[in-house]
């Protein structure tokens, strides 16, 4: 890579690495440390091909790598998660806003990896259905159904908690 490439990559990191790390945390449902490892692995792939992709929306390329890597990683952990969260915990209904947020994040983590990715990309990244479909390599119809089912599942679980409403 040329010095200009290197400098441009550093600028890209400065501008986007935090956003990518946040996406990785939400999509992966993992700890910040795990997500950091995942994000750095994805950024290494970006760096490897940087001279070729730097002028062609590198952020989308990086985000696609992060999301797909997060989905793959989550799938490997799914068995453990399903055992751990086979039944909703018998916790009291949240009484305050911070508790509600924690509860929502907990429910988000329980969604299947791909469904969670759709929810994050649609409702946190604010990507359109078309953009989300392109990111995940699926149809717009799949995005619609996954998003609807994800929200429905979360709503059902939240509704099952006494006194909880959003």
């Amino acid at each position: 890579m040329t010095e200009e490439d290197e400098a441009a990559f550093d600028e890209f990191l400065a501008a986007r690495s935090t956003a990518l790390l946040r996406t990785a945390i939400l999509v992966c449902g993992a700890s910040a440390h795990d997500a950091e490892d995942l994000a750095q692995g994805a950024l290494e792939k970006v760096y490897r091909h940087w001279p070729r992709i730097r002028h062609d929306n590198p952020e989308a390329y990086a985000r696609r790598i992060v999301v797909n890597a997060a989905i793959s990683r989550s799938r490997r952990r799914r068995v453990i998660q399903e055992i751990t969260f086979a039944r909703p915990p018998e916790t009291a209904a949240p009484q305050s806003d911070p508790e509600l947020k924690d509860l929502l994040i907990g429910e988000l983590r329980r969604l299947p990896a791909r469904m969670r990715a759709v929810v994050v990309l649609r409702y946190w990244e604010d990507l359109s259905e078309t953009e989300t479909a392109a990111m995940l390599g699926c149809s717009v119809g799949t995005v619609k159904s996954q998003a609807a089912r994800g929200l429905a599942r979360m709503r059902a679980r939240m509704g099952a908690r006494k006194g909880t409403s959003v």
Binding site: K101, I105, W124
Partner: peptide, 11 residues
């Protein structure tokens, strides 16, 4: 729910 979820993710 979407709004609450977005707030929760942002937080």
């Amino acid at each position: 729910l979407k709004e609450a979820l977005k707030d929760a993710m942002s937080a």
